[in-house]
Simulated assay, not measured.
Amino acid sequence: MKLLKKTALVGLLLASTSAAAQTIEGPEVNWSFSMWGNPRALSAGMEAIAEEVATQTGGNFNIEIFYGGQLSGSRENLDGLQLNAFEGAAICNFYHPGKNPAWMVFSLPFLPLGDPAVDQYVRSKMFEHPAIVADMAAWNAIPYMSGLLPQYEVLGSGDAPTELSDWEGLRVRAGGGLGDAMEALGATKQTLPAGETSTAFQRGALDAAAFPYTYAHVSFGIADEADWFTSNLAPGTSECGWVLNKTAYDSLPEQYQTLLMDLRGMGMDVEQAAYAAQDEVNLPVFKDTMEEIVYSDEQLAEFREIAGQPVWDAWIADNAEKFDSQAVFDAVWAYAEEAQAQ
């Protein structure tokens, strides 16, 4: 019943905009977006925006998302934008940390992003931060819409790490500051692209993988390889969001630019509804087929002490000469406080 309600919510979000829409006049424009993997919750928001753009322009402005790396590999999407090979793309910040150093703030562990409403507010504000904008400007891109990835959890094979000491020596797919947090527990971090992770499990080259809970574990076949899953570790997340080709965006008529920007809130609402709907389906299966690891409050407090402040301090120090890393970090917390006060 809950799944049906949440699925219906996605439909209502689309219907509510379409019902009130009036056709926007303008020239014929065709855009291509680059995305790896298959259509999934992460792409649901952008798919909804593409549909609404076509509806409101009477089919004159069309956005087509190309999946499976048809246009570019997951690590090369920024390069493709710089070369004007396509008009938009999804990127994951930890696939290429050197290309988007300020964006790596989103991958720091234990940020105050667990509440979906707070998360959406903070990321929307951060997408306008000068350092975040500057990262994309270097690649002829502009930040568009956050992927709002849920908090990560870890799925793995072999013996379950029921104690924090059990992470010692495990090979864990985890990127950015989240990977640093796992290293603080003694694990070895690996930053494989999502599409290569299941194969790494099958080859015995990987013990565990951190992904947005639960949809990505299913989308990329990790759940098929795993024996256990954590359900309350919530160590952090990352930013796999959508960016636009700046040259292409600047070339749009003003009414098309306004339409794109006005639809971001709807797109993020659709994303979050899609994630919630996936959890309704996936969690019962996880519980039936895998061992669930639930850490105690004491264990979680110990993890945050080991892998929270030290990882934050190291990131700020390592990036201080590249941009105002302290200001970027502080902005996340300030926006979270704003969101909670509303």
Rank of each mutant, 00 (worst) to 15 (best):
L3F: 12
V10I: 15
L12A: 09
L12E: 13
L13V: 03
Q22V: 12
Q22R: 11
E25Q: 14
E28P: 00
E28R: 12
N38W: 10
A41G: 11
E47C: 01
F61P: 01
F66P: 04
F66S: 14
E76L: 12
L78D: 02
G88Y: 03
A89V: 06
F94K: 01
G98T: 09
K99I: 07
N100M: 15
L108S: 04
L108G: 03
F110D: 03
P112K: 08
V122R: 03
R123Y: 02
K125N: 13
M126I: 07
F127I: 09
D135V: 03
M136N: 13
A138H: 12
A138D: 13
I142Y: 10
Y144V: 09
Q151L: 14
G156T: 03
S157C: 10
S157M: 07
E168W: 04
G179F: 07
A181E: 06
A187D: 06
K189S: 13
L192S: 08
E196Q: 15
E196H: 14
T199W: 05
G204V: 06
A205Y: 03
Y213D: 06
A216H: 10
A216S: 11
D224P: 02
E225G: 03
A226G: 04
F229H: 09
N232M: 08
G236V: 02
Q255E: 15
M266E: 11
Q272C: 08
Q278R: 10
L283V: 12
P284C: 04
V285M: 14
F286P: 00
D288S: 09
I293R: 04
E302M: 01
A314G: 02
W315H: 01
E321D: 14
S325I: 01
A331R: 10
V332F: 09
Y335S: 08
E337Q: 13
E337R: 09
A339R: 09
A341L: 06
